[in-house]
Amino acid sequence: MNNVKRLNKWANAHTYFPVDLLRIALGVFLFVKGISFITNVQYLQDLISPIDTMGGGMFLVHYIAPAHMVGGIMIVFGLLTRWAIIAQLPILLGAITVNLIGNMHSQSILLAFLTLGVCLFFLFYGSGKNSADYYFKMQE
């Protein structure tokens, strides 16, 4: 807990508007990806088919899209950003695994690696000053 407070203090002292725009863009991207998975469930089932042999395929279908949508909204507003990103990490690692095990799509794996990298950045950086977390913290 002490490490998180120290990271928050550092991030709030070194916050920049372009970093906040990157966080908002990440949240919008995840939300739109969740919407696309809901509107095309068969595409999502085809994507997870290489790892569906382990079981839990229907659980994954019902976890991925809502986690992207809710997590994306939370990341856009900067509300519990680290928790929202922690919920995204298994999905992104699964996306990389699916691309490595199944048919390799260079654009998809590049997008998954890029999204994972940005998520890991915000996992350590936090939500910054222009966020709901900072606003609620200042209300205390």
Rank of each mutant, 00 (worst) to 15 (best):
Y63V: 06
V32W: 14
F37L: 11
M69P: 10
A65P: 05
W83Q: 01
I73N: 07
F77A: 06
V76D: 04
V70E: 02
I86R: 05
R23C: 11
I35N: 04
I35P: 04
S49C: 12
G27T: 06
V70D: 03
V61Q: 01
H62Y: 12
I85P: 00
A67S: 04
R23A: 05
A25N: 07
I51R: 10
F37N: 06
V32F: 13
F37C: 11
L21D: 02
K33E: 09
G34W: 13
G27Q: 03
T53W: 14
I73S: 10
V70M: 05
H68N: 09
T53K: 06
L30D: 00
T81P: 06
A67V: 14
G57F: 14
I86Y: 14
M54Q: 03
L44C: 15
I38S: 01
G27W: 06
I85Q: 08
G27K: 03
F37I: 05
V28T: 13
L47Y: 12
G34M: 08
Y43L: 10
L30T: 01
V76W: 09
F37Y: 11
W83R: 00
A87L: 14
L44W: 12
L26E: 03
I85A: 02
Q45R: 11
F29T: 02
V28R: 07
I24F: 13
T53C: 14
F29C: 02
V28S: 11
A65I: 01
F31I: 03
H62F: 14
L22V: 10
T81V: 15
Q45F: 15
I38C: 00
V41R: 09
F31G: 00
G27H: 03
Q45H: 12
P50L: 11
L47V: 11
M69E: 02
I85G: 03
I73D: 09
A87C: 04
G71N: 05
M58T: 10
F59V: 05
I85N: 01
